[in-house]
Design a protein around this nucleic acid. Structure first.
Lengths: 169, 169
DNA sequence: CCCATATTGTAAGTATACTGTCAATCATCA
DNA sequence: TGATGATTGACAGTATACTTACAATATGGG
């Protein structure tokens, strides 16, 4: 016989992992924006800057794999970074479809200057937990994100970043 | 003397709590949408339906406090739910500014029917972890979200939901 | 070398998430 | 009571996140 459906309460929402992940993400963005308010950089824009700094001459498609952001979304992010003159786009000589991404002078400066604020924000997100619990949560979360990598629409492909190194224009 | 800045690597991104929260949220939404593809309901719309079911006659402002979603965002969500005929909006007699929210017949059916898929999705998100680790992660996350409640732009105010009960129209 | 297939960037369309602002309405207090 | 300030829903604007589609370009097999 079929199992009786449980009554629907707000607990069905409040205790669901998906709801907690959404809520925590909202909180994390809120803290990031607050700590970094002096820099006019969003979390996504910051991550893109770090990746371009680490992989100069990367193209947008590989960049999306390296930070696991949607390729279409990243187009707009890159546009905004370019309009703020934080990055530069140069056509590749080897592949006319590709535009290579580089940090500009001011982009490198902005990245260096924002780092302390970013680190403060990351600390603040976990601050309410006891130090031991912070480590546990971070370890479990790292593990879960890694094991669920293929479940996301844009899996992380960190290795892809290396392929561009022979192709710089 | 000032401390030397650490070199910037992708680890500055990959190990940051904020990045892991974002990634996990992407994965969670992806799994939810996949499991619930038969229902044309997003996670946010599902949460709103549950809250309206649990608090019939609630208004949009209180609803936003009950599920901790931005009030402006929620306006569009409500619009979509109404255009799908899953909820109904009725003006309040006591306060001409307010529109009270109720589940429609088909909304109640949709909510009942989607529950098993939602539960499957919630299980899948944590599936890769060992059962004991799932409990630990959930407990720490619940604690962290609660302790960080005020840090978010839209703090959860579960109690606010009760205030409308005397005002229904 | 040519054609089928894949890749790259771009764009349009939908949905969340936030910032403001605004008019209508309500509640309070001098 | 009547002016003040708060609340409600609506709207405009920006940013992320995803889908599908498309043109230009590359690549590989025959």
């Amino acid at each position: 016989m079929p199992s009786k459906p449980s009554p629907i309460t707000m607990d069905a929402v409040y205790t669901a992992p998906g709801y907690l992940f959404r809520r925590m993400q909202q909180i994390a963005v809120s803290i990031f924006v607050e700590e970094c308010s002096a820099f006019d950089l969003t979390p996504v824009q910051y991550a893109a800057l770090v990746a371009i700094h680490t992989h100069p001459g990367i193209d947008a498609t590989r960049l999306s794999a390296v930070i696991a952001f949607d390729r279409s979304t990243l187009g707009n992010v890159i546009e905004r970074l370019e309009s703020k003159a934080l990055i530069e786009r140069k056509p590749s000589r080897e592949d006319k479809r590709v535009k290579l991404l580089y940090l500009s002078k001011s982009g490198a400066v902005a990245l260096r200057d924002i780092m302390p604020s970013v680190e403060r924000a990351q600390l603040r997100m976990l601050q309410p937990l006891k130090p031991a619990d912070r480590k546990t949560l971070l370890a479990l979360l790292t593990q879960l994100v890694d094991l669920n990598n293929e479940a996301s629409r844009v899996p992380l492909r960190a290795e892809d970043a290396l392929e561009h190194l022979g192709k710089a224009g």
